[in-house]
Nucleic acid binder design. Structure first.
Lengths: 226, 226
DNA sequence: GCAAAAGTGTTCATAATACACCCATGG
DNA sequence: CCATGGGTGTATTATGAACACTTTTGC
């Protein structure tokens, strides 16, 4: 392909970046991790998802992991490629193509994060002003997450290892933005055979203790109903 | 590529390319368009899908369209982004990240293509030796296509404007690689309400003429059964 | 004893599957 | 008249949806 040196003219290349939309569920809300973006004279007082350039010796996946670790102190989370955004004008400073990722952690994991200054969780329903095309990226991520909730076990990445059926149902209701019948939900989720009972009950205050469950496997599995 | 010629200090970039996996169904087979790849000393006598670099003034989508037109003479086809492949060693000449696309045309459209020298259709079950990571890209494309057949109207892009139910069923059977009951298939596909009858019958030889149908809309629609 | 969440079954409607024969045409 | 693909219906089963009360605990 390009055999010339980077002579800067007619050279076809773009700066290649990654952006990672990191989700967590907390307080009955789907939240996304943002950090301030301050790029004079284009952006100030706005936020964006963590991201950065891809190094010449790493894959996009590795770059996304690295930037999440460096900028947000998060590691070992579930991550999948979302979409590659390549609008010519998406970065006012010049041509930057971004490979976007979805990443998921439980509230529990979120609590353990080395608290980097400047990172902050926002409910997706109350996003601040965003830099670049990050609103579109987040929107795309939410759609993907919603769809995958319905036909994969991806939800396991938003929960701690052990959880109750109510907690599980809650996450579905929050992300899908609708109420689900408790009896039908339990029947269905248990019939899928992905869960196992864990000994011990969760004592949660002034109410009946709940059975605790865990996923048999956290490997992404497609429930092919077809 | 170019990491040995860092004219721009620490500048991190990669060559950005697109690759387009163009599918067609013909002769009871899913076929993909390939062209020879001859890159000395790395590749000779092997094939790859059409593709090329992204220009600094075009999006990845536009680049994919352009390369399909330039290299294969195909235009106005259905196209969607597939995945971005970024393995560091995927191009032996240097770092090239590729945004891969799926494109679909009907056999009818394929026949009208200005016959570019060197392009050739191969059944996906009999692929020749392939350059780069194109086998992986094609594999990923086939999986995506199969999945989307089941919950979208994407199949319309593989058919001519007017077609019979048998032709439609045939495409499903070929791509999903399984037999489908004729009566159940018709019941289901008609109940989705995406088709309209077209006046006229298809006379196909020594048998009863078949009713002709067309899609009410070719816009990609998700059949949310959920 | 009461507030709060856990847990549990049945009925009904709809959708998926399995399955076999007659129809219209060209040669 | 026969070979070829077009076209149709029913019975069975599985799945999804609607729906209300009892249980266990902390206070």
């Amino acid at each position: 392909m390009n055999k010339n040196k980077p002579t800067k003219k007619d050279l076809k290349f773009a700066i290649l970046a990654v952006d990672a939309v990191l989700f967590m569920v907390r307080d009955e809300q789907l939240e996304v991790l943002l950090m301030p973006v301050n790029i004079q004279p284009h952006f100030s007082g706005v936020h964006g998802v963590p991201g950065g350039l891809i190094d010449s010796s790493e894959t996009a996946d590795e770059a996304a992991e690295r930037h999440l670790l460096e900028k947000a102190g998060v590691k070992n989370m579930y991550m999948e490629q979302l979409y590659t955004f390549s609008d010519v004008e998406r970065d006012p400073r010049g041509r930057v193509v971004s490979v976007a990722y979805i990443a998921l952690i439980s509230q529990e994991q979120a609590g353990k994060i080395a608290n980097k200054k400047d990172v902050e969780w926002f409910p997706v329903k109350k996003l601040p002003e965003l830099a670049y095309d990050h609103r579109k990226i987040i929107q795309t991520a939410i759609e993907r997450l919603s769809i995958k909730l319905e036909y994969t076990n991806i939800v396991c990445n938003l929960l701690p290892d052990e959880f109750t059926l109510s907690e599980l149902q809650n996450i579905y209701e929050i992300i899908l933005n609708k109420e689900i019948d408790k009896r039908n939900f339990r029947k269905k989720i248990l019939s899928l055979g992905m869960l196992k009972e864990v000994s011990g009950k969760k004592v949660g205050g002034a109410n009946r203790p709940a059975q605790v469950y865990s996923f048999k496997s956290k490997k992404l599995t497609t429930l092919d109903i077809l």
